[in-house]
């Protein structure tokens, strides 16, 4: 089959895929706005947590999936924002606006520092540096008793009265996460987003083409850090509490797990992964007290056998189905659209 023919077939197949995607998105939105009226507070809280985790996971995936730079210390950014809010709420008499401001400033400041430190490295070195960054935030959280309250954390964080109930806070989180998702969608389709993908494919080639990859990585940190900061602020008001467990390395590894489980290098992947992980964690914890093992084993399993994640599996079967009907994309289109392999770069 010639290339032109197969490309033509791909074009014919695409609208079906796009239509299905749009329909699913619409259904998801309708469900998201209707189900809170039917669900229990407990489930509602869990879904809110999943939404916030999804935003955090997407911010990590912007680096890990799109740019191919895996951060295992991003809870440091999330946690800085949480501690910023917590400090003002717990140790001073600052109002909601000041809490937001300090939380935001703390998250962005952490992103800037992290970015400056890691922007010149790549590959494994990048991972090691980000682990160290996350761990150092954890170290500060456990040791700076006067500011962070150490193991006791910072109690006394309260949501504003208007959105006090779990029901109302769910809608706040939903809308913020939706708007942020649109923002991320725009980012990954912007020139910067494409440049990040180029970074994943070959940093050397990007440099040869005249891109300043160091600056590009700093931009990536800022963009990702911005969304992680938003997630942190949402999370701290959801929990109304922050302590060092929010910044342990497991908190940084979870969004990476969510991304790979759902499908790394996509936005919907981390979203789905976040829901799977949050619900899995909740129900596993009800049965046995071995969540850490389950998480570790899931990590190993996914890395060994399912690197394309759920989205990759669905795509594979969807294309197979389309192929069987004669309208499927040929090999050319399939390789172009399949989830990017994790091992590149």
């Amino acid at each position: 089959m010639s290339m032109i023919e197969s490309a033509g077939q791909a074009r014919k197949a695409l609208p079906i895929t796009a239509r299905v995607q749009l329909a699913m998105l619409a259904i998801a939105l309708v469900v998201a706005f209707i189900f809170p009226f039917l669900a229990s507070t407990f489930i509602l809280r869990l879904v809110t947590l999943a939404l916030v985790s999804a935003l955090f996971a997407m911010s990590v995936d912007l680096m890990a999936g799109y740019a191919g730079l895996v951060s295992l210390g991003h809870a440091g950014v999330l946690g800085s924002a949480m501690y910023g809010v917590g400090y003002v709420a717990s140790k001073t008499d600052g109002g909601f606006a000041l809490q937001l401001l300090v939380g935001f400033a703390a998250g962005i400041a952490a992103s800037v520092i992290f970015g400056l430190m890691a922007m010149r490295s790549s590959g494994v070195y990048f991972i090691l540096i980000t682990i160290a960054q996350g761990m150092i935030v954890w170290g500060l959280a456990t040791l700076l008793v006067k500011i962070t309250g150490a193991e006791n954390g910072l109690p006394g964080i309260r949501r504003p009265v208007v959105v006090e109930t779990e029901f109302r806070y769910y809608f706040v989180a939903l809308i913020v996460v939706l708007v942020s998702s649109v923002g991320l969608f725009i980012v990954v389709r912007s020139p910067v987003g494409f440049a990040l993908k180029g970074l994943r494919e070959s940093e050397t080639r990007m440099r040869m083409l005249g891109h300043n990859t160091t600056w590009l990585k700093f931009q990536m940190f800022m963009l990702s850090g911005f969304f992680a900061t938003i997630a942190g602020i949402l999370l701290v008001y959801l929990n109304e509490f922050v302590n060092p467990t929010d910044v342990i390395i497991a908190s940084s590894a979870l969004p990476v797990l969510m991304s790979i489980l759902g499908g790394i290098g996509t936005l919907i992947g981390p979203f789905i992964g976040a829901f799977v992980v949050v619900f899995l964690r909740n129900y596993v914890s009800l049965e046995i007290d071995r969540w850490q093992s389950i998480m570790g084993l899931t990590f190993i399993f996914v890395v060994l056998f399912a690197r394309d994640g759920l989205i990759g599996a669905v795509k594979k079967h969807w294309y197979k189905y389309l192929d069987s009907k004669g309208s499927g994309p040929a090999a050319l289109a399939a390789t172009e659209m399949a989830a990017p392999p994790l091992q590149s770069g």
């Binding site: 494994v124 590894a253 850490q292 084993l297 060994l304 994790l342 091992q343 770069g345």
Partner: peptide, 23 residues
């Protein structure tokens, strides 16, 4: 099984650390 794939190797070993720690 994943020889030569830098990032999966790192992620596998961190998963392993969680299992060892919990054990």
């Amino acid at each position: 099984r994943i020889r030569g794939m830098e990032k999966p190797e790192v992620l596998l070993t961190i998963g392993l650390t969680f299992v060892i720690g919990d054990f």
